[in-house]
Every structure is written in structure tokens, then in C-alpha cells.
């Protein structure tokens, strides 16, 4: 078996890299794939929290690199899904504790046993980014329809294009607010795709459910009724090669829709 190594990156912080990682990983595992997630955000680890695994971590990636434990020993199994594992980041060390070569080696090792290796990349374009990308051959660039996030995504895409090892990258548009797009207050999905001229792999709506799911340490894909959960599930299916149409995120609840509704009601009466 030779698993696919996918790095999830964004440049800007706070756009939902880690949330994306946790949800795509969980969705892939739910689909029966063997998945391992690597948190490379040394010193600022969070993936363990999103998965609810913070109390189960014994060894971290730094322990593996410094040979205090075997790679297999450092993998933490998910509570719900035995197909899903986490290799946690060290909280007490910084980005220099692991090198590009070491990460590459870890990825190669994990490729033997897993279908997917998802690498959670730290924000920024410094060494942490270089490390995270080192072992990957695919990338998912997470961005939101905000100017600063799109600008940073453009930088990241430029850096990814310069890397020979990265064979393909896809865009994931997070925290989309259909009502704001409708009222022309937010850039649309098409705007962002056109500006970045990249292929889209997912559109995730802004969803307050993300906050509660993070608080519980239970990724939102486990909630069958959530729209964001469905959207993340679709991303996972697209990663597996399925042709899944994008969700229609438009709900007719905006002021615009109400006026339209009121109007058509009146028109009906006039007739």
C-alpha cells in the first residue's frame, strides 16, 4: 500500500485549516479508509482538541524524531473510529525541533500502512510550512472569501507551484456566507476561484455548529444534519475520486428573498 500524503495549508491563520483537517480525516475514515493525521504545528497544537484526543497523547512527533519511541507508539487512535489516528505535535517545542527530511521520512513510513496521510500545516510561510509540505505530493489550500485570506492563499499557491514534489493542489473555500454574497457584501465563490485560478475541491458554509463541535471535540461530519458536515463529507468523497456536485448553500432567508416573496404575494393579490 502506498498512501496519499495531502498537506492542508492556508498561509493565513484562523481560516479553518485544523477544522478542515479534522473533518476531512474523519470523513475519509468513516468511508472506510485508513487515515492518519499529522499535526506539524509545533508549540501550537490544536488538532488533538478538535478530535477530543487531548487527554490521550503520550508521545509526540518530536519524541518520534528524537527516538524516544517508535512511530507506531506515538499514533493515537480516535475514540469513535479505529481507522483514524493522530500523530500529535509537541506543545513545548518550536518549529525547529523537526526537519524537512525527518518529516519526509515519517510520511514515507506511514504511507505503507495508511491510505491517507493528512498533514496539518502551521500558519505562515516559514520553516513550519516548509516542513509540513516536505513529505506531501498533494495540497489543499484553505481560504475564506476575505481579502487577506485570499491574498495569503495566492502566496501559498505561488510557493506550492515552485515545489516539484507537489503534483496537485486544490482550493477549499471555507466560511462562505451565502446571504452576504447575495447582498454583494462578500466575494462570491466564483470571484475567489477566478482570482486565484485554482481548482475547487469544496465550499463550506459558515456554520455555528463548528463552534459547538469544536467545544465537544467531535468533528461536525459526525453530525448527519449539519450542512457544513455534509459539505466536508463531499470534499472527502471528491478526494476519493467521486464526482460530487457542490451543495446549494443558498437559503431563501435574506431580506432580499423576503422582499421578493412579499412582492410576489402582492402581485398575486392585485391580479
Amino acid at each position: 500500500m502506498s498512501g496519499r500524503v495531502i498537506v492542508i495549508t492556508s498561509g493565513k491563520g484562523g481560516v479553518g485549516k485544523t477544522t478542515t483537517n479534522a473533518n476531512i480525516g474523519t470523513a475519509l475514515a468513516r468511508a472506510g479508509k485508513k487515515v492518519v493525521m499529522i499535526d506539524t504545528d509545533l508549540g501550537l497544537r490544536n488538532l488533538d482538541l478538535l478530535l477530543g484526543l487531548e487527554n490521550r497523547i503520550v508521545y509526540t512527533i518530536v519524541d518520534v524524531v528524537e527516538e524516544r519511541c517508535k512511530l507506531r507508539q506515538a499514533l493515537v487512535k480516535d475514540k469513535k473510529n479505529p481507522n483514524l489516528c493522530l500523530l500529535a505535535a509537541a506543545q513545548t517545542r518550536d518549529k525547529t525541533a523537526v526537519t524537512e527530511e525527518q518529516l519526509k521520512k515519517i510520511c514515507e513510513e506511514l504511507q505503507k500502512d495508511f491510505d491517507f496521510i493528512l498533514v496539518d500545516c502551521p500558519a505562515g510561510i516559514e520553516q513550519g510550512f516548509q516542513n509540513a509540505v516536505a513529505g506531501a505530493s498533494e495540497a489543499i489550500v484553505v481560504t475564506t472569501p476575505e481579502m487577506s485570506a485570499v491574498r495569503d492563499a495566492d502566496r501559498i499557491i505561488g510557493l506550492l507551484e515552485a515545489k516539484e514534489e507537489i503534483k496537485s493542489y486544490k482550493l477549499l473555500l471555507n466560511r462562505v456566507r451565502p446571504n452576504l454574497i447575495k447582498s454583494n457584501d462578500m466575494m462570491s465563490v466564483e470571484d475567489v476561484v477566478e482570482i486565484l485560478s485554482a481548482d475547487l475541491i469544496g465550499i463550506i458554509p459558515e456554520d455555528t455548529g463548528i463552534i459547538t463541535s469544536t467545544n465537544k471535540g467531535d468533528p461536525i461530519v459526525n453530525d448527519e444534519n449539519s450542512l457544513a458536515g455534509k459539505a466536508y463529507n463531499n470534499v472527502a468523497r471528491r478526494i476519493m475520486g467521486e464526482d460530487v456536485p457542490f451543495l446549494n448553500l443558498e437559503e431563501d432567508t435574506g431580506v432580499f428573498a423576503k422582499v421578493k416573496k412579499f412582492f410576489s404575494g402582492l402581485m398575486g393579490k392585485e391580479k
Binding site: M147, N184, D185
Partner: peptide, 19 residues
């Protein structure tokens, strides 16, 4: 010009310079 158009236009210019 609405907020969306402003964002798109400003971004285009700034990305040109970045690139």
C-alpha cells in the same frame, strides 16, 4: 460600487503587485 466589487478590485491590484 458594492463591498464585493471593491474587494475584488482591490485584491486584483494588490495580487498583481505581489506576483
Amino acid at each position: 460600487e458594492n463591498a464585493k466589487e471593491t474587494a475584488v478590485n482591490r485584491l486584483r491590484v494588490v495580487l498583481m503587485q505581489d506576483r
